[in-house]
């Protein structure tokens, strides 16, 4: 009697659980897994929405991509962007976190202020920076000229246009990364610093011998998500320069967007997305390996 009551309970429980999971599972299957599978299929097809015909293409899309200079250039721009953003943004954010880590009067104010840009959407930040960067009336150049420096034309000088976008992205993201670093810093036991202080370690020694090593896990997380987000940069490119001037800021996602939704070449775009996905995956795996840590505290 008892036993069967339990069995009935268990059965009801599994039924309830599966029912609870069902909506999420269906949505996931239809909108994530099925498209992933279809993306793979499409990448092996000549599939252009304008001609509305799909035919099997084998590896032709992939082969063509490897020789496509525009794709190669966009890959390079994405990586160039990442190679600069990653160290600069990480260093600035860690610096900010260290500045506002200790509690003192007004620290909350500074934390909030540093975080404010995160709440401004990427599209809006890009729009505003585009106006600030304007050569004749933009605030940046008025200030630069005002203090006797040469004006910078971020929007139409191919040599520096990427740097303008980099500055905008760092401005927007540094507060976000700062918060992650703050959480990591607060996990380091105060007693370690006290012990180091007693042993006569200076501020720099404490930073390099305690803070940095014990921050390794947080650092790994920051480096990996920053890299992924940076490689996928799109919105500021689309809004500030649309890939120009002279293609100097076109990134991979911009390339995929243009190929898919301007040229309507779905097969080629899907193949580019897949190639890119594998590159990102490899980079992430390498980074995970590099950060594999034995430090426990």
């Amino acid at each position: 009697m008892r036993k069967s009551a339990y069995a009935a309970f268990d059965k009801q429980e599994s039924r309830a659980a599966l029912l609870f999971i069902a909506p999420a599972f269906v949505l996931l299957a239809v909108f994530i897994f099925y498209p992933m599978f279809r993306a793979l299929l499409i990448s092996f097809q000549n599939f252009n929405l304008i001609s509305a015909q799909a035919s099997f293409a084998g590896f032709a899309n992939y082969g063509k991509l490897l020789q496509d200079e525009a794709f190669g250039a966009s890959l390079w721009h994405s990586f160039y962007f990442t190679i600069i953003v990653l160290p600069v943004q990480t260093a600035i954010s860690l610096g900010l976190a260290l500045l506002v880590q200790k509690k003192f009067r007004g620290v909350g104010f500074f934390r909030t202020v540093y975080f404010l840009p995160v709440v401004v959407s990427f599209a809006i930040a890009s729009t505003v920076f585009r106006l600030i960067y304007n050569k004749d009336y933009g605030m940046l150049n008025i200030i630069l000229k005002g203090i006797g420096l040469p004006a910078l034309d971020f929007l139409s000088n191919p040599d520096i246009s990427m740097l303008g976008i980099i500055a905008l992205c760092i401005w927007r993201a540094m507060g976000f990364v700062m918060v992650i670093f703050l959480a990591g810093l607060n996990n380091i036991p105060e007693s370690l610093y006290e012990a180091a202080h007693v042993d006569g370690a200076g501020a720099w020694q404490r930073f390099f011998l305690i803070t940095l090593p014990l921050l390794k896990r947080t650092m790994a997380f920051v480096v990996i998500i920053t890299t992924m987000d940076a490689l996928k940069i799109f919105i500021p490119i689309y809004i500030t320069t649309s890939g120009g001037p002279a293609g100097s800021t076109s990134t991979v996602v911009h390339f995929i967007y243009e190929t898919a939704f301007k040229q309507m070449n779905m097969g080629y775009a899907a193949a580019a997305a897949f190639l890119f996905f594998f590159l990102v995956l490899i980079v992430s795996i390498v980074q995970l390996r590099l950060f594999r840590t034995d430090v426990e505290y």
Binding site: I32, Y34, M36, I42, I256, A270, A273, F276
Partner: peptide, 17 residues
């Protein structure tokens, strides 16, 4: 496992869907 799928890859088929 769906967390590793970047949105950029499924964007095209999602649009077709």
């Amino acid at each position: 496992s769906s967390l590793v799928i970047p949105y950029e890859v499924i964007m095209v088929p999602q649009y077709l869907l």
